[in-house]
């Protein structure tokens, strides 16, 4: 448990989230992320992982969702009434599920948008170099329209773009989605390196529990809008129920993959 740590970087206490004034989705979720830690948030389709992350980043409001109970504190300050732009300035950036790169902007322009909340041209240049250092593939792609690079590269753009805001905490929503296993490994390794070298704390929402628990130190398992289990990453990955239901490993070691169930589509949001 992390309770013996000093004060957590992020603490979510007993939040309730309602969409459209009537749909109760989170029913009292609590979790903490320590300074510089990686925490996994696991659960099946519709468990409420993305909703939890959006409650933290403030993006909930763009989807007519609202935190109706509980509190979210970042370094001891309440942030759940803030808009996303302010949350980013505080040092929390969400990398949304489905990547959401700006397809019509080049890869480099995408990265530059990440530096929006910081006004310093000099350091922006340096941060670009840092991103290209972690994602060397993006260097060759910098002038390409982001809509036309591969899915893995788009995920790198999305993470790199978030990095440009110099976050203290990155909320990563299913970075593995729709990617080939090798790429997933590559991206998780980079996330782990970012955490180690840059000290960025990560709250990682994943269906791919096997991968997530390899990089995380601590894990929470969600089901139906509640945390049903939490503990050390190792302990979770050895838990029999978890093995069965969330790691997709049945007794004989067959794999069920949730990745196959999901697909995503993105459109311009002119009319919504």
């Amino acid at each position: 448990m992390v309770s013996d740590a000093p004060r957590p970087l992020l603490s979510v206490s007993n939040i309730e989230v309602i969409y459209d004034h009537v749909i109760l989705v989170l029913k009292g979720v609590s979790l903490t992320v320590p300074e510089g830690g990686i925490v996994a948030l696991l659960g099946a389709n519709g468990a409420g992982k993305s909703t939890t992350l959006k409650a933290i980043s403030g993006l909930l409001r763009t989807e007519r969702g609202e935190v109706t109970k509980g509190a979210i504190e970042f370094r001891g300050r309440a942030i759940h009434r803030r808009n996303p732009s302010e949350v980013v300035k505080h040092g929390i950036v969400q990398v949304m599920e489905g990547r959401h790169v700006f397809e019509h902007l080049t890869v480099e322009e995408n990265l530059l948008t990440g530096a929006y909340t910081r006004h310093n041209g000099q350091s922006t240049k340096k941060d670009l170099d840092v991103v290209y250092h972690y994602f060397p593939r993006l260097t060759e792609r910098r002038g390409f329209k982001a809509g036309y690079v591969s899915g893995g590269e788009q995920q790198m753009v999305a993470i790199g773009r978030a990095l440009m805001a110099r976050p203290t905490l990155m909320l990563l929503d299913e970075p593995s989605m729709g990617l080939a296993p090798m790429l997933v490994t590559e991206i998780f390794e980079i996330v782990a390196r970012l955490n180690r070298a840059e000290g960025v704390a990560v709250l990682l929402a994943e269906q791919n529990a096997t991968m997530a628990l390899q990089v995380a130190r601590h894990g929470y398992v969600m089901e139906n809008g509640r945390i049903v289990l939490d503990g050390d990453a190792k302990a979770i990955s050895e838990n029999e129920d978890i093995k069965e239901f969330y790691l997709g490993l049945t007794g004989v070691g067959q794999r069920k993959s949730y990745r196959d169930v999901k697909h995503y589509r993105r459109r311009k949001r002119w009319l919504s």
Partner: peptide, 9 residues
């Protein structure tokens, strides 16, 4: 992408 724009601040 309005929502993504908000997400990056």
């Amino acid at each position: 992408d309005q929502q993504a724009a908000m997400a990056v601040g």
